[in-house]
Amino acid sequence: MTILKQEIKSQKLSITIWSLSIGLLIAACVLMYPEMKSEMGNVNEMFSAMGNFTAAFGMDKLNFGSILGFYAVEAGNILGIGGAFFAAITAVSALMKEEKERTAEFLMTHPVSRTKVVLEKLLSTFVIILILNIVVFLCSACSILIIGEETDWGIMVLFHLAALLMQFEIAGICFCISAFLTRSGIGIGIGIAAVMYFLNIIANISSSAKGLKYFTPFGYTEGADIINDRTLNIGYLIPGMVIMAAGVIVAFWNYNRKDIK
């Protein structure tokens, strides 16, 4: 696990900045909740009059008067976008950076097989994403405890689990791309995360585009669905995990046969 340790060590600063930025932003929103709670009745009325705009973000099915409803929208968007971008950047850089920064020659002339390099890089990507999600969850949990609101912790955990799986799926896709790149692909990674996010918005707005939810990991992170169903939508989750696995398999296949630059 030498490569895994080295990867985590080298990304300490990035993990800290991203984890605390997302975690503290969510905590700040939660800490504002008691003040906003009394005005939430008006907000619900306002949103109900906004039609497709509220549907796009899943806000038409949420009660802003409850901490869970408020949390699903605020934390859902912050962790959804922030986490997806972080996962995309981490994964798309994982293999590519060795060739971009010309360290591949150093690493690959040590007695480690390509399969082992890919495996440890993949594990380190998942561990790094896991660390971010643990920090974010702790920040969120502490902020909820501070304001003293009663909440359903089972749904909170489900909500964060969905976000974690969504980031794993994006990481799987971006990791696959990373195995083909030799130059920077951060733009591609962020682009993929953004497209996935907007696909879900389109699916929320138009009933004829509902099928898109099978292709975007944001389909199973919808806060309103998790709160109402008290479970993750397996119909959306399974295709997502298949896409992630396919991405990882292609990454292993390509990296084992490619010429290192």
Partner: peptide, 22 residues
Amino acid sequence: EKEKILQNIGYLPSEINFYRGM
């Protein structure tokens, strides 16, 4: 038998680069 070779060799590339910050 790539790995067996790499276990027993030492290599110095012409243009050498290391991990930044280390």
